[in-house]
Design a protein around this nucleic acid. Structure first.
Length: 309
DNA sequence: TTCCAGGGGTAGA
DNA sequence: TCTACCCATGGA
């Protein structure tokens, strides 16, 4: 980590993170659509993203995450611009937030070994692929996943932009962006007000209720990152949330680092029809069976194959 | 205008 | 457990 001098009212410093071996920065940030959902924004002219978040200290930080050079990534640059100087705790928090979003501590060696063993075309995924960009909080990922259900991607983007605009705290002057809404801010609004201010359709009561549970501490959703929690138990917790069904639970499991289930949505059915069952009738069970021998990696195997043609 | 999306909840069988 | 029906919104 290295410090830089402050610039007027804002304080900027750059934190350098060392990625794990064979880390593919570009594929991680573009692995699914999250980089296009506010408060994530793409950087102009180079691979990377920016967003504004609050630290536990109350400091508001705009993170700009990028990586020079191509694959394999040698270092990750996190430029942190804040309304106050960061102390050691703040710097550690920023580094941890970036590492979490990029999943730097997640081990994909077993999956990559499977890809190598299978040869082409799977071998290409052993070049550090498999990481899906995620949000700094489980709550934000939950809300976003709910906003992908029964809607086109353009609708998902519209809803998240509306949610951040209506309920996100404004960043201090110069940081130009709003933060992702805190659960308690959403929960504080009446359902009627919440529904009227963001066009979420029938998802509004689900997200409002979810925010209420999270704000009251009854959800304990951050504990779901604990790898000791059995995947089956985690799935039950997810399915108990209104608005989260089989597809959304499988998506959340992947974001939580569990890849044993496939998010079987309309995209999945379309892809399977084109790739594995052209001109054939097939049901969901038959389609899911295609990836069954990937075991606890089947969700990732499907996602990478589908997104890479 | 109608259909449907990166589905899910609920009632009734 | 399975099915039918309903759910709000906006793009195509």
């Amino acid at each position: 980590m290295k410090k830089e001098k402050d610039s007027g009212q804002l304080f900027s410093e750059e934190i350098i993170l060392a990625p794990p071996a064979r880390f593919d920065f570009f594929s991680t940030i573009h692995a699914h659509g999250w980089i296009d959902l506010p408060p994530f924004t793409r950087l102009d002219g180079r691979a990377g993203f920016a967003r504004v978040d609050a630290l536990p200290s109350g400091a508001v930080v705009r993170l700009e995450v990028s990586a020079p050079g191509g694959y394999p990534c040698k270092e990750i640059h996190v430029e942190a611009v804040s309304d106050r100087p960061l102390d050691d705790g703040g710097r550690e928090r920023v580094a941890a937030m970036a590492a979490r979003m990029l999943r730097l501590d997640e081990d994909f060696s077993e999956f990559h070994a499977l890809c190598r063993r299978r040869g082409e075309p799977w071998r290409r995924f052993a070049r550090g692929q498999g990481r899906l960009l995620r949000c700094p909080t489980v709550f934000e990922d939950l809300v976003k996943v709910i906003c992908t259900t029964n809607i086109q991607w353009s609708g998902t983007r519209r809803m998240l932009a509306g949610l951040v605009e209506a309920f996100g705290a404004p960043a201090p002057r110069g940081l130009w962006q709003k933060l992702f809404p805190l659960p308690r801010v959403i929960a504080r609004a009446s359902l009627e007000d919440f529904s009227a201010r963001v066009r979420l359709g029938y998802r509004a009561p689900y997200i409002h209720a979810l925010a209420g549970e999270a704000a009251a501490g009854r959800l304990d959703e951050e504990s779901w990152l604990d790898k000791r929690l059995p995947a089956g138990e985690l799935k039950k917790k997810l399915l108990s949330i209104k608005g989260i069904g089989a597809y959304a639970a499988a998506s959340m499991l992947m974001l939580l680092g569990r890849y044993g289930e496939i998010p079987a949505d309309s995209e999945f059915r379309k892809w399977m029809g084109e790739k594995y069952f052209p001109g054939e009738m097939f049901d969901l069970q038959k389609a899911l069976a295609v990836y069954q021998d990937w075991g606890r990696w089947q969700g990732l195997a499907y996602w990478l194959e589908m997104t890479h043609g």
